[in-house]
């Protein structure tokens, strides 16, 4: 089954990933790879380990055993590579995590200036373009406290993109939003997918999974239970647990 999705040029390779918090085993042997430009959606019940898996990919969680390779470089907690890897892997959080003491523009230029050592004018130029891209050019000098949740999340996406990442991770990016604000964030993500960004998205938005993703992975009990194209997963799930999950969320 994995062979059907064996990527020609994988950008993420995960082998036998196990993650334990104390005695609790949250990820129980994950094997998968993602090719450049692929859009992968992770679905599963809360507590199934999908967010933890995402956080392992950029080293926010250290792994118990197994291996994660980003562009063939291992993600290791203690390695100097970790900073380089994080520069290539953008992350968008459920709670946005914008820096409240900085304006939208300052949020975006912070890391390019202090991590990539870009010149300020250059960083501002890139940030301005990104704000335009996410439809917020008029909000560049606003602080997060005066932006709506949807606007905050779009700034957060722009902030991650300013590092020119090869991969973008989305950890339930619309779960903290009022229903009427979900659409504007999904539109930006959809645009990003069309631009060819490699994306891994944890979400409960099945419409996004159906319309935008190349592959849907269903995780349960810290394992990949089933994966396939959105059509395969939504129209004809093979596994009992996948069927049960899909039935539950469609109600």
């Amino acid at each position: 089954m994995e062979l059907a999705y064996a990527p020609e040029k994988s950008i993420i390779d995960v082998h036998g990933l196990i993650k334990e918090f104390g005695k609790a085993r949250v990820l129980n042997g994950i094997d998968t790879s993602v090719s450049a430009g692929e859009v992968v959606v992770l679905i599963g019940a809360s507590g199934s380990g999908k967010s933890t898996f995402l956080r392992c990919l950029n080293g926010l969680e250290s792994i118990t055993s197994g291996e994660i390779l980003i562009s063939s470089v291992p993600v290791e907690k203690k390695s100097k590579n970790l900073l380089d890897i994080r520069r290539q892997v953008g992350m968008v959080f459920q709670q946005f995590n914008l820096f409240p003491h900085l304006t939208a523009l300052q949020n975006i230029i912070e890391a390019p200036i202090h991590v990539l050592h870009q010149k300020k004018e250059e960083a501002v130029q890139i940030a301005t373009d990104l704000l335009t891209k996410v439809g917020l050019s008029d909000k560049r000098d606003y602080y997060p406290s005066s932006l709506s949740g949807g606007q905050c999340q779009r700034v957060a996406i722009a902030r991650a993109l300013a590092m020119h990442p090869k991969i973008m991770l989305f950890d339930e990016p619309t779960s903290a939003l009022d229903p009427e604000l979900v659409g504007e964030v999904l539109t930006v993500m959809k645009q990003l997918a069309e631009d060819g960004m490699t994306m891994i998205v944890v979400t409960h938005e099945m419409s996004f999974a159906r319309e935008v993703s190349d592959r849907v992975i269903f995780i349960d009990g810290g394992r990949i239970v089933e994966e396939g194209t959105p059509f395969e997963i939504f129209a004809g799930p093979q596994e009992k647990r996948t069927k049960a999950f899909l039935r539950r969320i469609s109600n």
Binding site: N58, L60, L83, D84, R86, R87, V89, G90, M91, F93, Q95, N97, L98, F99, E110, A111, H114, V115, L116, A156, R159, A160, M163
Partner: peptide
């Protein structure tokens, strides 16, 4: 989350 966001940006 502030630290995590910073780290995820390569800081």
């Amino acid at each position: 989350g502030q630290t995590e966001a910073s780290l995820s940006l390569g800081m």
